[in-house]
């Protein structure tokens, strides 16, 4: 049952050292504020799960919080590579990380399987690709009806999933609009769910009946953090800060520049700064 909490309490009560955690968002609605709170609390030894570990996982990896990353595309979208993640993989800095790599199709369907309570996802994929040879979690099953050999991957069942959404109702139901990505599946696959939202409205009366809504009883904690997706965006609230993504390439290229940036922009501030970061983006 959804409890309205401060972001610090929502993270403290739901994310623990050693957890497998997904901070999901497919370019849109990436829960940056929640990830920054996890960094401030120094919750470490995490297995980070995400289709597209972009700059928010680059930050968590660069701060040494990750021991393992399960992913399908590790880039700064449209800009280039993730330099902190590369430093961890190529040089073990600040610590070595294990990587488990899939395709997008496999990751999305592994969340769907987790949300469905199934042990695995089955699909037509990976044919001729190199990943099955380096990821023992990619296996095959034979269709009992047609004999076709299909790819199989284990379901994702994160200990906790964090997502950012546009609105919560006073009761704690949550509305996600725009590019909905894989957030609903990632939330329903998880043991615990924490949502940051742009705002709380009294109720969802009068909305289109097919909107993407997570009922309050599927959610553990909600924290109101306006701007909490920045530099990602919240459809209907503010646009993507593409310049910040371009800037990240330079900041993350240098270990000291990265550390200084994290100190000034994450460690020494609180979630309230996010509202001001999106003021020019509305």
């Amino acid at each position: 049952m959804a409890k309205f909490l401060s972001l610090a309490d929502a993270v403290r009560q739901n994310l623990h050292t050693g957890d497998t955690v997904a901070f999901e968002g497919f370019t849109h609605l990436i829960p940056h504020a929640a990830a920054h709170e996890a960094i401030r609390q120094g919750i470490a030894d995490l297995t980070l799960l995400r289709m597209t570990p972009d700059i928010v996982y680059d930050q968590m990896i660069g701060m040494g919080l990750a021991k393992k990353v399960i992913f399908s595309y590790a880039g700064n979208p449209g800009v280039g590579l993730l330099r902190r993640m590369r430093d961890a993989i190529e040089n073990g800095y600040p610590r070595a990380i294990e990587t488990v790599e899939h395709s997008h199709s496999a990751m999305a369907q592994a969340y769907e399987a987790g949300a469905s309570g199934l042990p695995l996802a089955v699909f037509r994929g990976y044919k001729g690709a190199g990943l099955p040879a380096v990821n023992p979690d990619i296996r095959t099953v034979t269709c009992p009806f047609t004999g076709e050999e299909l790819a199989a991957v284990p379901a994702h069942r994160p200990d906790v999933t964090f997502i950012h959404a546009q609105k919560a109702s006073a009761k704690g139901d949550v509305l996600v609009e725009g590019i909905v990505g894989v957030q609903k599946e990632a939330a329903l696959a998880a043991k615990r769910v924490v949502v940051t939202v742009e705002e709380v409205v009294p109720d969802f009366k009068g909305l289109h009946p097919n909107l993407c809504i997570l009922p309050h009883w599927t959610i553990d904690a909600i924290a109101v953090v306006p701007g909490g997706a920045h530099p990602s965006y919240a459809h209907g609230y503010y646009v993507r800060d593409n310049a910040a993504y371009l800037d990240w390439d330079g900041i993350s290229a240098d270990r000291d520049a990265f550390a200084a940036w994290m100190k000034a922009n994450v460690l020494e501030v609180g979630p309230e700064v996010f509202a001001s970061r999106v003021e020019g983006l509305k």
């Binding site: 497919f26 370019t27 979208p77 449209g78 999305a108 699909f123 894989v182 609903k184 993504y245």
Partner: peptide, 23 residues
Amino acid sequence: LSIGDGELCETALTTVAVPEMFR
């Protein structure tokens, strides 16, 4: 800039969830 910029959703006929896209 990315495959998920808001512009893509705003000008699309429809936007579906990522698992649906792949399946």
